[in-house]
């Protein structure tokens, strides 16, 4: 064995994630994968991994980890997380080389929910249905499909020997402003006035949420003709409106089919930004058409490619 990363006191919600599973939704298997795919890709880029190599994802707090390999390079992204190695503060959004026995403590961030710890070479774990992404409800991916627990030893894959300077990158730019969504496919369940009122309102991100979906709180959305749709396909980003009229935004672990009317879908380019909004944060929405959504997707893709190209050496390392 090359070595391991040991969970000494992991945060309350740490899982292994990658890009998620593709091609299995037709069988009821959620996509899963990182809530903030941009931050996952950048963490991996900092340690010279492929963009969507498996990494640790943690909610709010990362916890304490121990390095049980001779030396390794790590990087933490997602937000301005407070990080220490044996009591010495480390900056996020850059790589660090740690040695055997060092303890890594990952605290919280004021500007994010989801954090990522990538390690050069990634983890040596068996993919399930083509992905290492943990989906707890299906008991798939990661370590037995579970959250990581105290005492877990995550085996490491050999990294290309990485000598030379540490690397750093600026966090991806995420201009504020309304979240963009494409209306439908169940618009007939809402009157035009209702949709207009929704788009003019401010909603608050609540504490009621997880990797499956996030409940918002704000002006009640009225249904024009009940709230039971014949169950049909769902994707991350869908804005469902259950009976009580408060919207739920579905996220990476969302079920594959569902029976509440869908008012719209937040565009893929804006989903990482939405996922990182902390409880209590406010959001507004703006409707765009499908062509504009695709343009935003291409723009986002290019932006991310450019950001990855902006990874630079840390002077003096």
């Amino acid at each position: 064995m090359i070595g391991a990363l040991i969970a000494i006191a992991p945060g309350p919600y740490v899982t292994i994630q990658d890009q998620g599973r593709r091609g299995w939704r037709r069988f009821g298997i959620a996509v899963a994968g990182a809530m903030d795919l941009d931050s996952l890709a950048l963490a991996n880029a900092l340690v010279a991994n492929p963009p969507y190599a498996a990494a640790l994802e943690f909610a709010h707090v990362g916890g304490t980890w121990e390095i049980a390999t001779k030396a390794c390079r790590i990087a933490i992204t997602g937000g301005s997380f407070e990080v220490w190695a044996d009591g010495v503060a480390l900056a996020p959004w850059r790589s660090h080389t740690l040695r055997y026995g060092q303890r890594l403590v990952i605290g919280g961030a004021r500007d994010a929910v989801w954090g990522y710890l990538a390690i050069a070479g990634s983890f040596d774990i068996m993919p399930r249905l083509g992905s290492s992404a943990t989906h707890i409800r299906s008991a798939l991916g990661g370590i037995n499909g579970c959250r990581l627990r105290e005492g877990d030893a995550l085996p490491l894959r050999a990294a290309r020997l990485f000598v030379g300077a540490e690397r750093q990158v600026a966090p991806p730019s995420r201009p504020p402003g309304p979240l963009r969504l494409v209306l439908g496919p169940q618009q007939e369940f809402f009157t035009p006035e209702t949709v207009e009122a929704f788009l003019a309102s401010t909603y608050r991100v609540t504490h009621r949420g997880d990797r499956m979906g996030m409940w918002l709180e704000g002006p009640k959305i009225a249904h024009a003709r009940g709230y039971n749709v014949l169950s049909d396909g769902l994707v991350p980003g869908c804005v469902q409106v259950p009976g009580a009229g408060q919207p739920v935004v579905l996220l990476m672990d969302c079920q594959t089919v569902g029976g509440y009317p869908k008012l719209g879908t937040i565009i893929t380019a804006d989903l990482p930004r939405f996922a990182q909004i902390r409880p209590g944060g406010e959001v507004t929405f703006t409707a765009i058409d499908i062509e504009a959504a695709h343009q935003a997707y291409r723009h986002h893709h290019n932006m991310l490619t450019r950001t990855a190209q902006l990874i630079v050496d840390v002077p003096g390392t």
């Binding site: 593709r22 939704r25 037709r26 169950s231 049909d232 396909g233 769902l234 695709h294």
Partner: peptide
């Protein structure tokens, strides 16, 4: 096309906008 999800009365088609268009 990335994947499809057949349901009772509709087919969800997931696609990559970098490779095709609506």
């Amino acid at each position: 096309i990335i994947e499809t999800v057949p349901t009772y009365r509709s087919l969800l088609i997931c696609y990559d906008p970098l490779e095709t268009s609506f």
